[in-house]
Design a binder for these strands. Structure first.
Lengths: 233, 233
DNA sequence: CGGGGCGTTGACTGAGATCAATTATGGTGG
DNA sequence: CCACCATAATTGATCTCAGTCAACGCCCCG
């Protein structure tokens, strides 16, 4: 898999890495930094569709679909490995397990989108934000980036609002409630989870949909090296 | 592909076809009727994640993921073709185009989920419901089930509410607004779109994400027979 | 040290939820 | 054919969560 990486690219913070309508020729693997997937509406509103952490393949759909229907933007400085589509497709055909692993990643992405629909559609602002924090924390922990319930948190309150269908003002007040309840500390781009059980319970969070702690018999995909087993879940 | 179908099954209306936690051994192809995908929250709320029309493969994720994280329920009487996972996986490996076509379907599903996130997160109730109607209409038209802007509509107002994060009362009032604006007629399980351009514009609907009207060079998957080219889009 | 991004606060507003009936509608059995 | 029942649609009154508008403060960075 590593052989397929043609090159590594750097992006500054707050740059568009992929734009709606683009027809990328390469798959992206995020090696370092944070990106988000988002759509812009005609009225200027933004909807963030997902956040991505190091290890994520955030652009597999263009392997099979001709153009992109959303944007990918960097939240921080990023390092990205690029793999030409052609090489990936050939590899997937020559090694069915690799193809299945890539496909499986897209199925998990879809599961995350479904959970976001549930979150935005049927949970309160308080639970929604708690849920986003739970999910992001677990995914960061899974790649070893959240030891001791502590992690870098480059997602601004405006980003949270645009991801959860809330205004920044209300995000601010809700985060103050989460702090006041002793669940989290969140300041200066740093998140500390003070009460993991309490946070999960406030969010109604069940990490099963992320498929991280897998059953013993599951076949591991080749991106296992990029995605070590969860540590502090 | 048809050879892989081991059998055909019938379901009554309002039955669970697949339940959370199930480990299905077969892929489902909806031949006739309507189903929805949904999650139940601990507080009893329901979030509908997608609606499916004849021709849809609504359960491919279990090909690669061991258990289901949501439910599939029938809205009407349904006829479903079942294909054993083993046969599908083997076919996907022997004929890479089939594997790619299945994978591509899951990528389009994910695109639809993303559009729903955008819908629920950032659009008004009026636009949300208009958008749901646009999407469902286009998908029905694509399989020839919506001639003359008219189609069966088994989705109740409660279903619409649970899919768009709205209460049934508000769905009712919003539908009355859509009717009052001369955009749709919707009564007795029957939808007529009276002003397609107006409806699209109210919804901010752009069908590109459904990937139905494909560019001339795209390789068609084997489910083409189940999914004829769009007619009245 | 100045400016822009981000976080915070207060006052006010409004879209949509909730509660509680009431009225179709369609299917079913007698 | 009709009474009955469950499901679905509709209506009115009231409430509330979250949005909007408008400042202001903080902190980082050049």
């Amino acid at each position: 898999m590593e052989n397929a990486c043609s090159r590594t690219v750097q992006f500054g913070a707050h740059r568009d890495i992929i734009r709606e309508g683009d027809q990328p020729e390469e798959c992206h693997v995020l090696l370092d930094g944070f990106v988000c997937r988002y759509k812009l509406l005609s009225d200027g509103n933004r909807q963030i569709l997902s956040f991505h952490v190091p290890g994520d393949l955030y652009d597999t759909q263009n392997l099979l679909l001709p153009y992109t229907d959303h944007n990918i933007g960097s939240l921080t400085n990023c390092t990205v490995a690029l793999m030409p589509h052609k090489a990936v497709i050939e590899m997937a055909e020559d090694f069915p397990r690799i193809g299945r692993a890539l496909w499986k990643e897209t199925l998990i992405d879809a599961a995350i989108f479904r959970e976001w629909i549930t979150n935005i559609g049927r949970r309160s602002a308080y639970a929604r934000i708690a849920h986003l924090i739970c999910e992001t924390y677990v995914r960061l922990a899974a790649v070893g980036l959240a030891p001791d319930f502590t992690t870098a948190w480059p997602i601004t309150q405006a980003d949270i609002g645009d991801s959860q269908g809330l205004s920044t003002v209300h995000v601010n007040r809700t985060i103050q409630e989460l702090r006041g309840a002793g669940l989290i500390k969140l300041e200066k781009k740093r998140l500390v989870i003070q009460d993991w059980e309490g946070l999960k319970s406030a969010a109604g969070f069940d990490p099963a949909y992320l498929r991280l702690r897998v059953a013993p018999v599951i076949v591991h995909g080749p991106n296992q090296a990029l995605m070590p087993a969860p540590t502090a879940v």
